[in-house]
Design a protein around this nucleic acid. Structure first.
Length: 236
DNA sequence: GACCAGGCACATC
DNA sequence: GATGTGCATGGT
């Protein structure tokens, strides 16, 4: 098992982009809306997050100020469709309180904070882990940090480039050390991996249709396919 | 009815 | 430091 080379990472990007085109991420209009989405989508289908965000918008509480004032039970009720609503309500409150405590509620001054400092501070907020922090940094604040997630982990491990249980930062470092810091490209690359990942998901690999099919899948992935009865006919 | 989805914190050993 | 568990909805 050896990690992908720079050329391989570039080739993956080219193929994904050619297959799917630009993804125009993040699916959210304002900095704050992107941050809310980043918390709500934790281990949750994006469609459910959209319902929750729609509720917040319809109730006119999809702003920093409104979310500061809203009661915890009401917030939990509105974001119910996104799952884990009690925990996520508290996490959103934690994020709001952090922004007021640290930046007087100003996303503009928050945006001026250097990447490394802002990242460290975000990670200190209870409920903001590495992926949520990096999503906020890249997609809300346009900072050059590569976001990795379950799809990224799956993509690399199935090509036998990494172990399935690779640590978040080890995985992130593979991209950060090989690719030049480029906000637009990091944005697009992660979005494309998610897009492709949905076609390479756990229960329905659809490998014949995967744009990466010309890579050699790993022995592990082959075993995975065999175990689920996907190998006969269309796997390679 | 089982399994899955763009994590994270916390308990326990 | 590694491993396990709770959190919860809506789609397939």
């Amino acid at each position: 098992m050896k990690p992908p080379t720079r050329n391989e990472l570039e080739e993956v990007y080219r193929r994904l982009f050619k297959e799917f085109g630009p993804q125009h991420w993040w699916p959210g209009q304002t900095k704050w809306e992107i941050m809310v989405g980043a918390v709500l989508t934790q281990n949750t289908n994006w469609g459910n997050v959209e319902r929750a965000i729609r509720n917040l918008r319809e109730e006119k509480v999809l702003t920093l100020k409104a979310l500061r004032k809203i009661s915890l039970p009401r917030l939990a009720r509105l974001i119910r469709p996104s799952g884990y609503f009690n925990i996520k309500a508290r996490r959103l409150k934690n994020l709001v309180n952090f922004i007021f405590a640290e930046y007087s509620g100003s996303l503009v001054s928050m945006a001026h904070e250097p990447l490394a400092d802002l990242r460290k501070k975000l990670l200190s907020v209870n409920g903001i882990g590495p992926e949520t922090a990096d999503s906020i940094l890249l997609y809300a604040f346009n900072k050059p940090i590569f976001v990795v997630d379950a799809y990224t982990r799956r993509l690399l491990s199935r090509h036998n480039w990494t172990r399935e249980d690779i640590d978040y930062h080890d995985l992130q470092n593979i991209f950060m050390t090989h690719l030049k810091p480029d906000v637009q490209k990091f944005n697009e690359y992660h979005a494309l991996i998610v897009r492709a990942g949905k076609e390479l998901c756990r229960t329905n690999p659809k490998c014949a249709e995967c744009p990466l099919k010309t890579f050699n899948y790993s022995a592990n992935f082959q075993k995975f396919l065999d175990a689920r009865g996907y190998s006969s006919g269309h796997s390679r």
